[in-house]
Design a protein around this nucleic acid. Structure first.
Lengths: 134, 134
DNA sequence: CCTTGACTTAAAGTGAACTTTAAGTGATAA
DNA sequence: TTATCACTTAAAGTTCACTTTAAGTCAAGG
């Protein structure tokens, strides 16, 4: 798979893919004899992971650190797991924040239902009054 | 309440509070005779709302729009409610994204447990082998 | 009286994460 | 053979949401 196809697949620009690779977000992509990137299954998995995590707000930095440790082999297993655990914690906190906001918005939305009803009733009152005057 | 107290209360800087007010994130704060801001209950509620929503990722723009409509009175009730509904939708999507990432991280973390066990077993194997050679 | 703290405007600076531009090389397909 | 992609490096530009700086005014308290 070439860069354009991968870009389409993940809705990223080729520039972003090169940028991500250049800063070490995932291992270097193999090239064909003419130096063109050829993405394999593993690469796709990495990119999928990176994209998912970035969308959830993991920093570039955390992902670079993870990938760097990955590159050092088995003795970094614990360290890598720790990063994942820490990031998961952060995401859980974030999710809880968002849940609070969702509830809060729900409450406000409900309040607006009340306000809208109130306004409707006022309008009806006006109409009744007008009817009386006829 | 003056700006310093409010800043402490919400862990925002006075500069940020002035900035928020200047761009219209909440209605203008009343001043005392010498022109110093004096925050009342309502102001505090606004700021609390704004801070909560900002932390969940609502844009400054959405919040400004909401407040602007608010300032136009009752005929914007529907429009205001719509903003809240739209933003809630966005937050729900975001939360679902984050949930996906949390699950994905959980899976990977578990995988690492497996890998760590494997490594441990290899280590044991080595020890056993060494024992045999004794 | 003088320090402290609040106020103002305008503008420049910051950091994160890209995006775009420039300027060039090299391979492949019609 | 010429157009189309892909590649490179380096650097500048963009957006968002502040933050900081500068340069000054004004009022209250010890």
């Amino acid at each position: 798979m070439n860069i354009t196809q991968v870009a389409k697949l993940f809705d990223l620009s080729a520039a972003t893919l090169r940028y991500y690779e250049s800063i070490g977000l995932f291992p270097p992509i193999n090239r064909n004899k003419s130096g063109v990137r050829d993405y394999n299954e593993e690469d796709i998995k990495w990119i999928d992971f990176v994209k998912c995590m970035r969308e959830s707000g993991l920093t570039i930095e955390a992902l670079i650190e993870y990938k760097s440790l990955f590159a050092t082999g088995d003795h970094s297993l614990e360290a890598r797991q720790k990063i994942l655990v820490d990031e998961r914690e952060k995401l859980i906190e974030k999710r809880d924040e968002i849940d609070k906001s969702i509830s809060r918005l729900a409450g406000k939305i409900k309040d607006y239902d009340g306000k809208l009803l109130e306004r409707e009733n006022k309008l009806k009152g006006t109409l009744v009054t007008e009817a009386k005057h006829e």
